[in-house]
């Protein structure tokens, strides 16, 4: 199916939390220099899927292959050390810590020798500021600045810059453009393309068809924890993709439904089902 060498592959992966089954029989591949767009409705299991790849969760059944050999990620650190960098949907920054500390959290650069290694604040701050500026956030010039004073989008960009910097093989982005302005979102898309050109495997989650179309080589749609569609760029039209992202219902039908409802109900939109 994929012509690129697969870096990460899932085979029949199931994930349940106690009695709750979240993922069923997921089989997916992402190759070098390829962008896999993971699409799906809220609660479809996208974040759970990527947390399984990032070492946060272990699969209940099935296997994960890296470079063709079965493997397991015992912890987020384990996945990180093997070159998988993830920007999770929520959090990822510490408001009362500096830009430099945030950027290098868990991977602190040190100076000095022997057992008395010291955190290299200057190096951390310099690299953090450089990398964040590359993301188009030029307002950040001081690595000592606390992240709590940054806007939501600036924090998001910091988290992405961090993943790009540490991601050696695989870059996983969970709704990275959700909090971003038009310019910064375009920047993130450019960075995804750049990472792809450098030969990284990228997994990209988004609810925006435009963003998915702009970078995706390969699309997988999750509906209630199962892969409902898996296709390559150009196999489907924009409308078809939008319909799949809405959980398989036709977008045009949904819109017509709402309009029809509003006409018969004095212009009020329908109440969400209880």
């Amino acid at each position: 199916m994929s012509d690129k060498k697969p870096v990460l592959e899932l085979r029949n992966v199931d994930k349940s939390f106690g009695p709750i089954d979240v993922l069923h029989e997921i089989s997916l591949k992402v190759g070098e220099g390829e962008v896999l767009c993971l699409l799906g409705d809220n609660g479809a299991g996208k974040s759970t899927l990527i947390k399984t790849l990032a070492g946060v969760h272990q699969p209940t059944r099935g296997e994960i292959l890296m470079d063709g050999t079965p493997t397991s990620f015992s912890s987020p650190r384990d996945a990180q050390e093997r070159g998988i960098a993830t920007v999770h949907q929520f959090g990822g920054t510490y408001p009362l810590m500096s830009v430099g500390h945030n950027f290098f959290m868990g991977m602190e650069p040190t100076k000095g020798v022997g057992p008395f290694k010291v955190y290299d604040r200057e190096k951390a701050n310099r690299i953090a500021v450089e990398e964040v500026q590359k993301m188009g956030i030029t307002r950040i010039t001081d690595g000592d600045r606390l992240v709590g004073g940054l806007s939501g989008g600036e924090r998001q960009s910091l988290a992405i810059a961090r993943a790009v910097y540490f991601g050696a093989r695989v870059l996983i982005l969970d709704e990275p453009t959700a909090a971003l302005g038009v310019k910064q979102a375009a920047h993130v898309l450019r960075i995804v393309n750049e990472a792809k050109r450098r030969g990284l495997a990228v997994i990209f989650i988004t609810h925006q068809v435009m963003h998915a179309m702009a970078v995706g080589d390969h699309f997988a749609v999750l509906i209630r924890g199962a892969i409902a569609a898996d296709f390559r760029k150009g196999d489907k039209t924009r409308e078809e993709i939008a319909d799949l992202m809405a959980g398989g219902e036709s977008m045009a039908d949904l819109e017509a439904n709402i309009e029809g409802y509003m006409e018969t109900h004095d212009g009020h939109p329908p109440q969400p089902a209880a």
Binding site: V56, P76, R77, G91, G92, M97, M105, G106
Partner: peptide, 14 residues
Amino acid sequence: FALGGDQESARNAG
């Protein structure tokens, strides 16, 4: 500091 700042993120950061 990360533990007190955001424990979930700290765990995700390894």
